[in-house]
Design a binder for these strands. Structure first.
Length: 297
DNA sequence: ATCCAGGTATGCA
DNA sequence: TGCATACCTGGA
């Protein structure tokens, strides 16, 4: 018998600046996170860790949240952390080279209040192990199936993602059945490795960017790009600059880079040009290109 | 039908 | 080091 889920009243989410609808969509559904969906009424519903929440923009444009009553007390503070409320993104943005880079300035202006989420490290790793040559929609499908079939129920109708310890007990075939394809092998192997090395992932999360990236790359299925995504979106390491095919094309078009540059060369250019917050710059570029993808690239 | 997708690992010059 | 190719499979 289906049980009703009672949701808390809408409350403001304490951010220095609320994003507009387009920016919010970029934040929640633009390739950082994969468990947010928007209802036709414009309400976003999402799951991370043991949290379930709804998000909306008030008529005044302020970001508000609601959660199932049973977990609302925990979700409130968790949401602030998830949104990186402690990070002053205006200050971060101001330290990017927009004054000398008109294209970057344009991207920033197009998506005001764009931010990088601070997602659970392990879940971010799982999502980006799923991401190889897949589009956001498909990654979301995979994630949903994995959670539904192998993750514990948080409240009626919402399942969390399995922990890595839980994933280690799932047969590879069962993972493949979640639309994972060859990615299932990587995920299974990573899960077994993590099961044998208790605390490994937690330790890596605390390491400085470069060392953490080096360690992450020891995991099967984790290369340059995935490692950077995990560190950027799951550990607030803004110096991470993930290079995928879209950014490669975008940089070539926008900055006149030679087509044929390797991802490493692009990454080097990105870090040199954008500085310590290259990852946030990358997110701005990405949002901008997606907006124009059909008619520009 | 055939081809590609927001990578990585592997094999071979 | 550098470059091509296989790896799964749903959807255009």
């Amino acid at each position: 018998m289906a049980t009703f889920l009672l949701w808390s009243d809408w409350k403001p989410l304490a951010l220095a600046k609320s994003p507009n609808a387009a920016t919010l969509s970029e934040i929640l559904d633009g390739g950082q996170a994969f468990r947010w969906n928007r209802t036709p009424e414009g309400v976003w519903q999402g799951v991370w860790s043991d949290c379930v929440a709804r998000l909306r923009l008030s008529d005044q444009g302020n970001l508000q949240w609601s959660a199932p009553n049973a977990i609302a007390d925990a979700v409130g503070p968790a949401l602030e952390s998830y949104f990186g409320a402690g990070t002053d993104f205006d200050a971060v943005i101001d330290r990017m080279p927009w004054r000398s880079d008109p294209h970057l300035a344009n991207c920033i202006q197009t998506f005001p209040a764009l931010r990088i989420l601070h997602q659970p490290f392990g879940e971010t790793l799982l999502h980006f192990l799923c991401s190889a040559t897949k589009q956001i929609v498909q990654i979301k499908q995979m994630s949903e199936l994995i959670a539904l079939r192998h993750g514990k129920e948080i409240v009626a109708g919402f399942h969390r993602l399995p922990t890595w310890a839980e994933l280690a007990t799932v047969p590879e075939d069962a993972l493949r059945a979640c639309l994972l394809g060859f990615r299932a092998r990587y995920i299974k192997a990573t899960a077994l490795f993590l099961a044998e090395h208790t605390g490994w992932l937690e330790d890596v999360e605390k390491l400085p960017y470069f060392e953490a990236k080096l360690k992450l790359r020891e995991l099967p299925g984790v290369g340059e790009k995935v490692a950077d995504c995990v560190l950027l979106f799951g550990a607030q390491r803004f110096e991470a600059f993930p290079v995928d095919v879209w950014i490669t094309k975008a940089m070539a078009v926008r900055y006149g880079l030679i087509t044929g540059w390797t991802p490493q060369q692009i990454a080097h250019f990105g870090r040199t040009h954008y500085g310590a917050y290259a990852g946030l710059a990358q997110q701005f570029l990405f949002a901008y290109e997606r907006k124009n993808r059909k008619d520009v690239i």
